[in-house]
């Protein structure tokens, strides 16, 4: 399987504080890569680097390279808009726009130039189906997205991301605000999504990482302590720190 993204010697500072230190990992296509580690270890910072959401933080400075199909995401002539279109993101708390369900989905295609009503309608149906939300909302597409339950809102956010056909979907603790049943649905969804997309997920829940991911990276204090196949990381970790973390002796 090819590497969709290759992160090499990535360093990141917030002002004087170095939040990421020499991160080097590959992200494999059509696989789920999980990032785990105690809070403050830099896993969210790292995932937000991948589609340059950290650009929004004024004091943030990045060094090193992050290649997406051989092009540097942090290159001087990279169009950040195109990066984010290719690499979508799901956030910790579901954040649908205060619009109708339909308008939430058509938002992305419209800003990227789709005008045809039939095409938009097709995207709405398609995205909602892929996000396993279609059956629950098909008869109320024009009602407010804010009226959906938390789990439905999060799946709507996934559908919204799918509407612009990204290659990679970044998920920053997507189930931490959801109940166990809604969480199970999202996990199931990730399983199907990965056939078509590449998923990178940050989670504070080790069971979740071991259940859904193919590769796992364990981070601690801004460093990538260990990165390997999930199965190996959870059964035969090569670092002592990793072992202590996954066996629950700190964290």
């Amino acid at each position: 399987m090819t590497n969709v993204i290759e992160i090499e010697n990535l360093n990141l500072w917030y002002g004087d504080h170095q939040a990421l230190k020499d991160i080097t990992i590959p992200i494999k296509g059509n696989k789920v890569t999980a990032l785990i580690g105690p809070s403050g270890c830099g896993k969210s910072t790292l995932i937000r680097c991948i589609n340059r959401m950290n650009d929004l933080v004024d004091s943030c400075r990045v060094e090193g390279s992050m290649m997406f199909h051989g092009e540097n995401i942090y290159g001087p002539d990279t169009d950040v808009i195109k990066v984010r279109k290719k690499i979508g993101m799901i956030f910790q708390k579901p954040n649908p726009f205060p619009m109708s369900i339909r308008d939430n989905i058509t938002y992305g295609p419209k800003i990227h130039g789709v005008e045809d009503e039939d095409e938009l309608e097709r995207i709405v149906v398609d995205s909602l189906k892929k996000a396993a939300l279609w059956e629950e909302v098909e008869d109320r597409l024009d009602s407010s997205a804010m009226a959906l339950s938390g789990g439905q809102q999060q799946r709507l956010c996934i559908a919204r991301t799918l509407s612009v056909s990204p290659e990679i979907i970044l998920m920053d603790e997507p189930t931490s605000a959801l109940d166990p049943i809604a969480t199970a649905k999202i996990e199931e969804l990730i399983d199907t999504l990965v056939k078509e997309f590449t998923v990178v997920i940050v989670t504070h829940n080790m069971q979740q990482a071991s259940r859904i991911s193919d590769y796992t990276g364990f981070m601690y204090l801004g460093e990538m302590i260990e990165f390997s196949k999930t199965e190996k990381l959870f059964t035969r970790p090569s670092e002592q720190l990793t072992e202590r973390y996954i066996t629950g002796r700190f964290g």
Partner: peptide, 22 residues
Amino acid sequence: PRSYREASLAMGATKWETTRKV
């Protein structure tokens, strides 16, 4: 909420599109 802006920017909208439409 900041999350609305993030959601829009994360889909490749420009700042102006985010301002205008979200």
